[in-house]
Design a protein around this nucleic acid. Structure first.
Lengths: 136, 136
DNA sequence: ATCTTAATTTAGAATTAGTCTAAAGTTATG
DNA sequence: CATAACTTTAGACTAATTCTAAATTAAGAT
């Protein structure tokens, strides 16, 4: 299980965010921050059952919700799925939905230029874009 | 119950789309095509219980799914809700999510200009945009 | 019109995703 | 080390949607 962050680094990150670095939280973080790609809660549970079989479903949901609250993760919902996906990229960015694989791919906002002339009185503070298509 | 389409017009539209114009389908169409604004299945059921109390929950879902299939409606899912919303505007357009009211507002694509330089091999054929903010 | 077949609707069971609860286990602090 | 605060857990619960199998309705062929 190669990882992009050591347990120590994850611990530090959780502590800095004001979240107690429990064993379960560290394990989930390792997966969602390093090995997973836009996983669902179910993906996390399946992984945990294999690799860290001491994590209950409630803890998976609790932890993911906590990580979203402290901005270590971002929630993403796309039209094609009724499941929430979790994105470890919390920087502003967009998504490409690959209809072949069903996977989301991050799109750097520098690649996208949007000019919107919204009606009077519309105050926008965020914009979600999902490009849909295929990657070959 | 003022309406933008007569029963006859709805019947014709359904028939042209290859869908049998049953009483239930016509009633649901009248609501979603004329009186409703991005309703959920639940909104449709609630309306039906008041105004056309012969429609079961299963029929609401079946009908909405059918209408989506034949492109009389479009499904919309936004991050803030776990319910599907149905859009009677099937033309290409975007949405503004008003965080105050929780309502979706259609945005004419002519108001929006997007230039996307997607990575090599990405073939996009559709783009979903949701602007989020408040309308005052 | 009448019979037959296909399509539609229905109530309610089932499924899915996610939340809640209350008890048990950990961790932190005085 | 006691006790309060926090976490985790299993399993009950909820909400949105789908499925199922029986009953109704509509359509087509005599």
């Amino acid at each position: 299980m190669r990882s992009c962050l050591t347990s120590e680094e994850i611990k530090t990150r959780l502590s800095l965010a004001g979240v107690n670095p429990t064993a379960q939280r560290i394990a989930i973080c390792r997966f969602v921050l390093c090995d997973a790609d836009h996983p669902t809660a179910d993906d996390v549970k399946t992984w945990a059952d294999k690799n860290f079989p001491m994590v209950s479903r409630a803890t998976v949901y609790n932890t993911l919700n906590t990580l979203v609250q402290v901005k270590i993760l971002k929630e993403v919902r796309v039209s094609h799925s009724n499941k929430v996906m979790y994105d470890s990229n919390t920087e502003h960015h967009y998504h490409f939905f690959d209809e072949t694989s069903g996977k989301l791919i991050d799109i750097d906002p520098d690649r996208v230029e949007v000019k919107a002339d919204l009606p009077k009185g519309f105050k926008m503070h965020e914009m979600e874009i999902v490009f849909k298509g295929k990657v070959k």
